[in-house]
Amino acid sequence: MKRFMVLICFISLLTLLTACSSKPSLELVNTNVDIVNDKDKVGAIGITEGDKKGKELVPTALYYEFAIKNTGNKKIGDIGEKGIQIKIEPNDNLVASSKEIIGFNIFNPSEYEASGLGYGHTSAYILEPDQEEKYTLHYDLGVSEDNPQVPFLVPSKEQLKKLKDNALDATLIVLLDDKEIARFDLKNK
């Protein structure tokens, strides 16, 4: 009877260890957040009407940069929709700051409609074993000159500082094929 119980415990332990190792092994190596006004990082908004038609406005944006490493021994991701994606899940304090400073929750894509502003990301869809890649997310906050296409002017330096100070009050979620595979509390980074 004792041998049978030991065998059952051993099989259960082995099954548990196998189940745990099937989840992708990701590590958040580095986190950086900044307020930027850089066309190479956030792009530009083309003016399509008025006296300045054809010119570009470079938005000021909340810019996140993450280094994520595959610490496992299997490739994670694939090309296109089955690739690795990331998103920010803001905590209540960060949402409140965003609404107070910008007027809406910048982390909710549907709230950007008709604002003239946008958001974007860069990412590597595939992480090979022991590979580290850089991922970025940016959220436009406004432009520096009046324009009817983009009615949001850049907030004051004090407001931008407040938003940046609260920017890590969030969770980074890593998705694969629209399913969550990892989450990292940014407040502790």
Rank of each mutant, 00 (worst) to 15 (best):
Thr18Tyr: 10
Ile11Tyr: 12
Ser97Val: 02
Ala124Met: 11
Phe152Asp: 00
Gln149Tyr: 00
Ile84Asn: 00
Gln159Asn: 10
Leu153Thr: 04
Leu172Val: 08
Thr18Cys: 07
Asp92Tyr: 12
Arg183Trp: 04
Ser110Ile: 13
Leu57Trp: 11
Glu89Pro: 05
Asp140Cys: 09
Glu145Val: 14
Asn32Cys: 01
Asn147Leu: 02
Glu132Gln: 13
His121Lys: 11
Ser21Trp: 12
Pro109Tyr: 02
Asp140Asn: 09
Lys82Arg: 15
Cys9Asp: 09
Gln131Lys: 08
Asn37Pro: 04
Val150Met: 07
Tyr119Ile: 11
Phe66Asn: 03
Leu28Thr: 08
Tyr139Asp: 03
Tyr135Val: 13
Lys187Gly: 13
Tyr139Val: 05
Asn108Arg: 06
Ala67His: 01
Glu158Phe: 04
Ser144Ala: 15
Pro129Glu: 05
Lys87Ser: 08
Glu113Pro: 01
Ile86Gly: 02
Pro109Ala: 08
Thr122Lys: 12
Ser110Met: 14
Lys23His: 14
Phe107Trp: 03
Ala96Ser: 10
Phe10Ile: 15
Leu26Tyr: 01
Ala167Pro: 05
Asn105Phe: 05
Ala61Tyr: 00
Tyr139Gly: 04
Gly77Thr: 11
Leu57Arg: 04
Ile68Phe: 00
Thr18Asp: 06
Ser12Thr: 13
Lys75Trp: 11
Pro129Arg: 07
Ile76Asp: 01
Ile8Pro: 14
Leu16Met: 14
Asn93Val: 08
Ile47Arg: 11
Ala96Arg: 08
Lys55Asn: 13
Gly103Asn: 06
Gly54Thr: 08
Asn73Glu: 15
Ala182Ser: 12
Ala61Phe: 02
Gly120Cys: 03
Val143Cys: 01
